[in-house]
Amino acid sequence: MSVEQDLVTRAVQGDADAFGQLYESNFDRVYRYLYVRLGNQAEAEDLTQEVFANVLEAIGSLKWRNVPYASWLFRIAHNKMIDHIRREKRVERVDSDETVLSLDDPDPAEIAEHNLQLERVRHNISRLSPAQREVIWLRFGAGLSTTEVASALGKSTGTVKALQYNGIASLRKLMEQPA
C-alpha cells in the first residue's frame, strides 16, 4: 500500500491526522489553481473553502481505485470553478486584483513588477486552446504531475505531454508579441 493510499484510506475512515495531511499538502495548490484561473483573491478564497467543504462531504464515499488523490480533488476544484463562472455569467478574468505573492523582498516596486508579469502570463495562457490551457493551469499552476493531470482530465499521459509541449510553444510565441 502506497503512502498516499494509506492516507486516503485512513481519511475515508475518519482519521483526522490523515485528512489533515491531505489537506495541508493540497491547500496551497488548490488556492493557487483557483486564483490563477479566476484572478480574484476573494473569489479564490471562497471557492477554496467550498472545495474542501465538498471534499469533506464526499470523502466518506471515496473508493481507492489507484487514481491519485490530487486528480479527484482537482476535478472537484475544476467543477466548482466552472459552476462559479457559469453562475457569475462571466468568462475567466484576464485582469487580476492585487495579488498576494510570496516574495522575499517586500519592495512595492518589485511587487508591482511581479504583478504586471503575472498578468501577462495569465493573459497569454488564457489565449491558448482550452485543452492546452487546462493542462498548463494544472501542471504549472497547481504543480500536479503529468499522471495526476491526465487522470484529472480523463486523458492519456501522452496527450497531456503533447498538450503541455505545444501549449508552452504557443505561449512563447504569444509572450514574444508586444504587450
Binding site: 478564497e45 473553502q49 505573492l101 499552476g141
Partner: peptide, 27 residues
C-alpha cells in the same frame, strides 16, 4: 518560457490569515 510560468504562477500563495482561518474552519 516554462521557467517564467513556474516562477510567476508559483509565487501566488494564500495569505497567512486566510490559511490559518481556513485550517481552523476545516478542522
Amino acid at each position: 518560457t516554462s521557467t517564467l510560468v513556474v516562477q510567476q504562477l508559483g509565487a501566488v500563495e494564500p495569505s497567512p490569515e486566510f490559511r490559518q482561518a481556513s485550517r481552523t474552519w476545516v478542522r
